[in-house]
Design a protein around this nucleic acid. Structure first.
Length: 713
DNA sequence: ATCACCCGGGG
DNA sequence: GTGTACGGGTGAT
């Protein structure tokens, strides 16, 4: 038996556990009231007891902050719907409020030593080897019955596919009823969709409601998310920022969501087990929320209460201290141009390792128990606690170890390499975000001084690494945060020496036949994250230029990839220079096609996410013109949603002439040939700028002038 | 010249 | 229930 899923209904104060037993999956219900805690005025106990919604009150000994001594607080068992009202009232009376916004499901799981996918009756939460139930999964996709123009919720369903089953060419009501029957019949545990939260499920529910029938894809009646905006979907993408469409008794997982893409089902199950967050919720969270969950769990286990709306102010600092502390991570400006035989070396999980090795946590940095601590942060000289190990290191250490175990198993158990790769990858993202959250002023266990301390150690470590590399004969080409690009002999030796001295593994990440560091286009100095190179395994590594950006039209991406493909044939710097004319030849062919109207409109689409509504834009730009066109078609676009457009007349001040929404384009649509040609020249410039090929020069070459200058390089 | 606006990670 | 900061490019004013 396994605990497949667990949900809480605040209206009836009921926990529903979905227990999977062989091929059956049944709900088990029990009434449950979450607890909140109140500190400050213990004489309020009887008053609180008399409030509506309060089930029970008593005194408990708890810590109200990390590192503080346990004190007497009031524990209030309460109906979930009364929590916020009572909390606000007590806050106004000057009380401290704790565990207010703690999900009742997670409270329940912690109290009962359960976690998602527990094998019942007993299972160990942090085990590396554990049993996963046989889960029946089916993919669900829905296609509207319209192939031209902008699709909206008003378009009827064309086709539904559920696993191998195809439902189409029927009356729409019949299609939906058949879907209900097929789901019930196949009885899957998992329903996988591609953007099901923003499209498939809200669309299906909307269409079903029009026919006055009920969509029934869960094991019980679906609980629809409340709230949400207008319903439409713009060209098959985001409909509206929807709440998750979670099913009762089945798991609806959206494959396009970050954590699912990064970890797959097995990675997600692994993370659900250790964070205690049910799979459906977890799959819709950011890695940062998962890290916070681990921290909250650890704090609760330590008897520490979680403050409501905590936002710790920075300690007072002098202007000079601020100047020193606010410097971020170290960067060494890259040497612009082509370099042969370069190596990239990176520290593995640098920041998490710093937090663990140097005991960095909100309660240990500038702790009051060790003002004369021997452990001082470099540059800032903050004292660090020598008596207690902080919350953050206690959470991160097992996480780093878990990831290392999975990484080792990729090679030791190659038959399960893929599974372990997913599991280590999802943990990598937790480690990465654990640093960012430190600097985020609303993070539950974040603190800016921790953030500063981490970057201070980071600077010291990278500086020391550079010293070692320099003294052992390496040329430093570029360095940023936790990575270094060097030129020299025996990089393995360098990694070994540094790893030993620093105590954090420095890994040889790439060995380049050649690498080109690109300049900043506006001032010519080395740009921190713009480069491309070919590794000894023949693979290209490209960063920062147009082809890496999601808003770049396919035409521009194709051009850069074709040019880079030509250059990548070069094995040496000499061969690289010889390949430049061929790369320029690629540009020539692309510009000719653009001018001769040979481009496919679908290759010319810009895709970007708008940050505000149509009327809030202060500038008349492509986004605004596109939004106005969509509005004219009766489509409202909310901030955060994606829009797509083709440039038709870039100089026009008329929003209908300047761009066109792809769905409205037809065979008569004329794209702005000059503008797209300009974009091609710029994209080529991005690649060849260190060798003197500016946009103007390339323009001249394309027009047949300056042939001679090709020979100069 | 200055301001507004959007993107980035990996496989 | 939600979450960085900032360097880089491009375009508008």
């Amino acid at each position: 038996m396994f605990l497949l899923d667990i949900r809480y209904d605040p209206k009836s104060s009921t926990i529903t556990k979905w227990i999977k037993d062989g091929t059956e999956c049944k709900p088990v219900r029990e009434v449950y009231y979450p607890k909140m805690y109140v500190s400050g005025k213990t004489e309020l106990l009887s008053l609180i007891d008399s409030l509506p919604g309060v089930k029970d009150v008593c005194f408990e000994e708890k810590r109200t902050w990390l590192g503080s001594e346990p004190e007497r607080v009031i524990s209030v068992t309460i109906e979930p719907n009364s929590v916020y009202e009572i909390a606000s009232m007590l806050e106004a009376k000057g009380c401290g409020l704790y565990n207010i916004d703690l999900d009742p499901v997670r409270q329940y799981l912690l109290e009962h030593s359960l976690f998602p996918m527990t094998k019942l009756p007993y299972d160990s939460q942090y085990a590396i080897d554990y049993e996963v139930p046989d889960l029946v999964s089916m993919e669900l996709s829905v296609t509207p019955g319209r192939d031209k123009g902008i699709v909206t919720m008003d378009d009827p369903i064309g086709r539904i596919t559920l696993g191998d089953i195809v439902i189409e060419q029927k009356d729409e009501a019949e299609i939906i009823s058949e879907l209900n029957r097929e789901v019930a019949n196949a009885n899957p545990d998992l329903i996988l969709t591609d953007r099901g939260d923003s499209f498939e499920l809200p669309y299906l529910h909307h269409r079903a409601a029009l026919h006055d029938i009920e969509l029934h894809v869960g094991r019980e009646k679906d609980v629809l998310p409340v709230g949400g905006g207008k319903s439409y979907f713009s060209y098959g993408r985001i409909l509206y920022k929807s709440r998750g469409y979670m099913l009762a008794g089945r798991l609806h997982l959206d494959k396009s969501i970050f954590l699912f893409r990064e970890g797959g089902l097995l990675g997600l199950i692994d993370l659900a087990r250790i964070t205690g967050i049910p799979l459906q919720e977890l799959s819709r969270l950011s890695p940062g929320s998962a890290v916070t969950a681990l921290q909250v769990n650890q704090a609760l286990r330590d008897g520490v209460l979680v403050p409501w709306k905590r936002n710790l102010a920075e300690y007072w600092k002098t202007a000079e201290e601020l100047l020193i502390a606010d410097r971020g991570a170290l960067v060494i400006e890259p040497k612009v141009g082509l370099h042969e035989n370069a190596f990239e070396v990176d520290f593995a999980s640098l920041f998490p390792n710093i937090m663990v090795n140097h005991n960095i946590s909100p309660e240990t940095v500038l702790c009051t128990c060790c003002p004369d601590s021997q452990k001082l942060v470099p540059f800032t000289h903050y004292n660090i606690c020598q008596q207690h190990i902080g919350l953050i290191p206690r959470v991160l250490k097992p996480l780093i170890e878990r990831r290392m175990t999975y990484k080792r198993r990729i090679t030791s158990e190659p038959e399960r390499a893929e599974e372990y790769e997913m599991k280590q990858n999802i943990l990598k993202w937790l480690l990465v975000t654990s640093f960012g959250y430190m600097g985020f002023n609303k993070a539950r266990f974040g603190r800016i001084e921790c953030h500063e301390s981490i970057t201070a150690y980071g600077r010291e470590i990278l500086l020391r690494t550079i010293e070692i590399a320099d003294s052992t004969g390496f040329e430093i080409l570029h360095g940023i945060v936790d990575s270094l690009w060097v030129k020299g002999r025996n990089p393995e030796k360098l990694c070994e020496t540094v790893s030993r001295e620093i105590g954090i593994p420095l890994e040889l990440k790439g060995e380049f036949r050649w690498i080109v560091f690109l300049p900043n286009k506006s001032n010519g100095v080395g740009a921190l994250n713009r480069y491309y190179g070919v590794m000894t395994n023949g693979k290209l590594k490209v960063r920062g230029i147009e082809t890496r950006r999601s808003d770049t039209p396919r035409l521009i991406r194709n051009l850069q990839e074709a040019m880079l493909g030509k250059l990548a044939e070069a094995r040496t710097a000499f061969e690289y220079y010889m390949k430049i004319p061929e790369a320029v030849g690629v540009l020539r062919e692309y510009t000719r096609k653009v001018l001769d109207n040979e481009c496919d409109l679908s290759d010319l689409i810009f895709k970007t996410h708008v940050s505000k509504g149509c009327d809030e834009y202060r500038q008349f730009n492509n986004q605004m013109a596109s939004l106005k066109q969509l509005k004219l078609e009766g489509i409202e676009t909310l901030p955060g949603q994606a829009i797509r457009y083709i440039i038709t007349d870039h100089k026009s001040r008329n929003y209908q002439k300047r761009v066109i929404i792809p769905e409205l384009a037809d065979e008569n649509t004329q794209y702005d040939r000059e503008k797209y040609r300009e974009y091609l020249l710029r994209a080529a410039e991005s690649i060849l700028l260190p060798f003197g090929y500016t946009e103007e020069r390339l323009d001249g070459i394309m027009r047949g002038r300056m042939q001679r200058s090709l020979c100069e390089y």
